[in-house]
Structures are given as structure tokens and as C-alpha cells.
Design a protein around this nucleic acid. Sequence first.
DNA 1: GAAGATATTAGACCGATCGTCTATTAAATA
DNA 2: TATTTAATAGACGATCGGTCTAATATCTTC
Lengths: 212, 212
Amino acid sequence: MEAQSPRARRRGRPPKCAEGGRETRELLLRAGLEALTEKGFAATGIDEVLRRVGVPKGSFYHYFESKEAFGIELIEHYGAYFVRKLERHLTDESLPPLERLQAFIAEAQAGMVKYEYRRGCLIGNLGQEMGALPESFRARLNGVFADWQARVARCLSEAQAAGEISELANCDQLAAFFWIGWEGAVLRSKLERNSDALKIFADGFLTGLLCR
Amino acid sequence: MEAQSPRARRRGRPPKCAEGGRETRELLLRAGLEALTEKGFAATGIDEVLRRVGVPKGSFYHYFESKEAFGIELIEHYGAYFVRKLERHLTDESLPPLERLQAFIAEAQAGMVKYEYRRGCLIGNLGQEMGALPESFRARLNGVFADWQARVARCLSEAQAAGEISELANCDQLAAFFWIGWEGAVLRSKLERNSDALKIFADGFLTGLLCR
DNA sequence: GAAGATATTAGACCGATCGTCTATTAAATA
DNA sequence: TATTTAATAGACGATCGGTCTAATATCTTC
């Protein structure tokens, strides 16, 4: 007895290598991301995040000023992570522009399947919760959407230049349309626990692109 | 002193007419709807709902078995309320089918404006929160979507019969597409506090309808 | 119209959560 | 080695959410 978990019962700064490489701060962000994409901000407690990682509470407020600050950082973190994923596809010169977008959609779909439709989009989740969130979140969330949208718009412009879609199409508007609908599709997909909504939206969007 | 609020300090069943006509239960549902469309389920406390109506806590558990039961009832309540709104437009024989849908969209948009984009769609809100909600909610939420979707599909079929949209269109799929995207638009609209997303989605959807 | 039965309210209660604070100890520094 | 700094441990108070028990007005019935 007295054993407890390996970390328990021992206060103070831990041995350097005990962390196994990954920093505690990173672990907290990762666990927070998982929790928030599943359950949102309000429904996720700090304690729960800490428990997942096996870190005691005291540490949290060493790394983050407050839950709000933690949330803000998660938004940036996730936004940037998603931009990388997006750009990896959208700038893939080996494919024609429209197929790049399709490749991104396919990966995003696979991501939903991977977590059995339990996790959604952090930005969408928090947007829905906005009514109960610190106002400081609003601008960041909008900023992330604006960024994502601009990148899709650029890709659509390239599709236009390549003659894949009509000269008449308004790429900015179409990109906005894409993200509006995609977030809706993620939401439904999470609710129904299948890919139907993702497929229906992706199909409909691409069909709509071609006949303008 | 000793005055307090008119209701305070007096336990037991209150005088009959004190209610002013509206039943307490109705008031709770109404206030709950407001709160949940703004902030979601998890972020809304019973206390807060009660405070809005000026009813003490004890009453709540007389009318509802639990917060969960309250939520379920709100879903039904809201689902039915929305079906009435939807049907009022979709069965309006004085307009051609497609314009009926547009009329519904216009009213829904006006609703968002009316509450300054603070309130969203209860069903969408709860869907997003599903990860933190009682499983019992899932089936109900899906049921409501299925209902709404079937009604829009019927309207689209009528549009098809009237020659407003192509014979080739798959009305069920289009109706699904509509609700997927509309929920996304409401979310964005709430986040950005303007109608841009609603307009972009509605325009894009209708344009897409016509060129199939 | 008195005596239960029922509907409805008042608010105590317990547990969870948030953010803070102090104590403790490993590492870095000089 | 002595001192400072980084990081963790976990108790604590305040608040709040959800549930439950007690109290009381009205209804019912004879």
C-alpha cells in the first residue's frame, strides 16, 4: 500500500526525464482539445482535463492564467493545426485544385470516422456555445473561420483559373458557403454517428460548383 | 423591512389567481427555451431559469422529474413549435412551392435578427453538445431533424411537379442538404452577429437547386 | 363545513467545480 | 555549497447545480 499512482505523494519539481519527452503543458493542451471537441467548453471541467493526463491541479494554473486563457490558447492551437492540415492538401500541386479540396474533405471525413463521430470541430463547438462564453472568444473564432475561408477561396480561384469551374463563380462566397455548410455537416454527423451528412454536403457542394 | 419579494417567505401552495393566467409550467418551458437557445444545455442552470421567472427551485422538480426530463420536453416543445412555423409556409397554396420555402427562410432570418443573433436553433445547439448530454437526447434530436427534413422534401417534390426544379433532382437528398447547411448558417450567424451566413447559404442553396 | 388528499412552494442539503494559495521539492545558477 | 527559480501537490473557500424534505394552500368528499 501507499503506492498510489507513480506521480502521487511526491511534491515539488519532478525529475527532468520523468516526463518522457512531452511537456506537461503540451499534454494539457492535447487533453483539453480532446475534451472540448467532444463536449464543449462549459461542460468540460479543468479537473477532468487534469485527471486525463494525471496531473494535479496546481500545475494547471502554473501554465495557464485561467480557464479562459486556456480556451483561447486551444483555439489558436487548433486553428493552426487545422491550417496545416488544410494547406497540405490545398497546395498540393500534384493534383488539380478541385481535387485538392476533395482530398481535404476525404481526410476530414476520415478523422470523424476515426473517433467514431464523438469529436467535432472545436471552432464550431465553441461558436455554438458563444452565448455562454467569454466575449474574448468571439473574435478569435471568427478569425479562424476567416483564415480557413480565405484559403479555400484561393483554391477555388485556382480552380477557376484552371477552367474547372465557371468564370462567373464568386469564389469568396463559395468558400464561405463551404465552411458554413461543412460545420453543419460535422454537427449532424456527430449527432447521427455516421458519415451521411458529410457525404451529402460534400456531394451537393461539388455538384453546385460545377453548374454555375 | 421584512417585505422581501412578494412571493418570498411564504411556503406552500400559493393563492390560485396569483399566477396571472399563465401556468408556472409554461413559464418554465418558455424561459428554458430562451436560455437553451442562447447558451445550450450544460451552461444553463436550473437556478437561472427559475430566477428569470421568479419561481423558487422547489417548484421545478414538481413539474419536471429532472433537468434531463426538462430537456426532453423542451425538444418536443420546440420541435412542434417549429413544425407549425414550417408548415404555415410550406403548405401555403397561394405561393408556388419554391417561394414557400423562401418565405420560411425569410421568417427564420427575421427571427435571428429579432433576438440580435443571440438565440440559435435549440436542436442544433443540443446536437453540438451531444457529447456531454444524456444519450436519451440523441434519438429525439434526430427525430426532429427527420421530421423537418421530410416536410422540406415534400415541398421540393411539389416544386418538381410544378416544374420549378429539375426532374432529376433528388428531393430527399436536397432536403437533407438544406437542413445540414441551414444549421451551419445559424451557427455562423450567431457567431458573427449578422445575417451574412444566412444569406450566403440561402442564396447558394437556391442557386444550386435551379441548375441541376 | 370539517377532514383528508393533493398540488405547489420554500429552502436546506450535498457534492462538484473554479480559481487561489501555501508548502514542498528538483533543477538551474553562481 | 548556497541561493534562486521552476514545477508540482493538494487543501481551501466560495459558488453553484441538482435533489430532496418539509410546509402549506387548495381541492374533494361526505
